[in-house]
Design a protein around this nucleic acid. Structure first.
Lengths: 222, 222
DNA sequence: CTCCGAATTTCGGTATACCGTCCGGGGCAC
DNA sequence: GTGCCCCGGACGGTATACCGAAATTCGGAG
């Protein structure tokens, strides 16, 4: 096959394609991802598709059974609950570390910019933009810790959260959400780790029950 | 090829083989993992080897560069430092959750059994047994939370820690280590989350500097 | 002796082909 | 009418083959 741009491989494109299809809902939860079907759709052979599926399986977006191949992961309420616990453990810690680094003079402007984008999107009523900015906000706090391992550990889960934002379409209060982000940002920049920790904890945990409630009619319990 | 036992696939065996080779030092850090070489060594074709390498790359044990293939990950001091932060964020949280579940009556005996094994190994001077039991101890606390996502997130890092135990061969104080585990176990069973949190934090963070010091002559800084 | 460039070799990326297993449907026996 | 068995298609698991890019090596010029 003719693949001129050496910078991007068929596997990468297949992975991106499948991931987009899952996020957009083209491949619903629990639906099978047949290798031949995908390879024909994407115009490549099965081998790159296989590799892409293995990567997505490692990330948790798809599950592969021994002789049945890959299916889009069927999220359960338990999964979402576990997701909140993982976010608590990682993001609360990250908020503290980020604050400590800010106190040492490391104060990048990205967080402010992201929040400006979020408020801009809120004004325009751009739901997708809001979700993207919110996800970026949480990702940026992790980035501010300078810890790539933390970042890599949380990234798949942030992707899932981003996905869930769509399922719980009518986000209860984007304004309140933004307000909390603004507050967290202030505290991080102000260099008070314990306060940042507490705010991050509350910001995440307060949404556990509402989200679970909203999803209780869409997702299987376990 | 004749592969009668359907329960195990060539990919699984290749993955296990390569992982073992890395842990044992047969494939040193930074050494290249050539697909043809591996496929010939393992007696399979390149395809299963590729998949195994992709899995190990997702786990972080090997790194793959666009046109150079896979190499055993070269750990740096920065990586190890980041590892300690990840463990702090996950294990401290897990200690709290595990304690809370214990307080609700969920009190499995596995933790005690693992510690008995650790002390038994300590008496025999069985270094490998000690390392295995210690790793199992930390893994069990995660398991006690009942959160499979936390478990999946920490597992690769515990594997790396287990690997590091070998590099820092002469573990300073296995007795002290065991004593701390015993103490943590007591507190978890006693149902005091805050105390468990504090003990877990200290137990991990107190070893950061010594380990970094011990590795400073073996690993590159960054 | 050194340096540079071209040929060769190496190696990952991909395609195609084959095999064994699993699943579904239809027919035959009871 | 029902249940069992056999057969065919579907699909994942694996092997082999080819291609292009990159690294290495070797030979010739300075």
């Amino acid at each position: 096959m003719t693949a001129e741009p050496t910078t991007s491989t068929h596997v990468d494109r297949a992975e991106a394609s499948i991931r987009a299809g899952i996020h957009s809902g083209s491949y619903p939860q629990g639906s099978r991802l047949r290798e031949r079907e995908l390879s024909e759709t994407l115009g490549v052979s099965r081998i790159p598709v296989r590799e892409a599926l293995v990567r997505l399986a490692a990330e948790g977006l798809v599950v592969t059974e021994p002789r049945r191949g890959a299916t889009v992961r069927q999220l359960t309420l338990r999964d979402v609950d576990e997701l909140f616990d993982l976010r608590l453990s990682l993001e609360v810690f990250a908020a503290r570390r980020a604050t400590e680094r800010c106190a040492q003079g490391h104060r990048p402007p990205e967080l402010q910019q992201i929040m400006d984008r979020a408020e801009e999107a809120t004004r325009r009523g751009d739901a997708a933009g809001i979700a993207a900015a919110n996800t970026a906000f949480h990702a940026e706090i992790i980035t501010m810790t300078g810890n790539r391992l933390l970042q890599a550990s949380l990234q798949p889960s942030l992707g899932l959260m981003h996905w869930l934002f769509r399922l719980t379409s009518t986000e209860a209060g984007p304004h309140l959400h933004c307000e909390e982000h603004r507050e967290i940002c202030r505290v991080i920049y102000s260099g008070r780790p314990q306060l940042a920790e507490a705010l991050a904890y509350a910001h995440i945990d307060i949404r556990r029950e509402p989200v679970l409630q909203a999803l209780s009619e869409v997702l299987p319990p376990a």
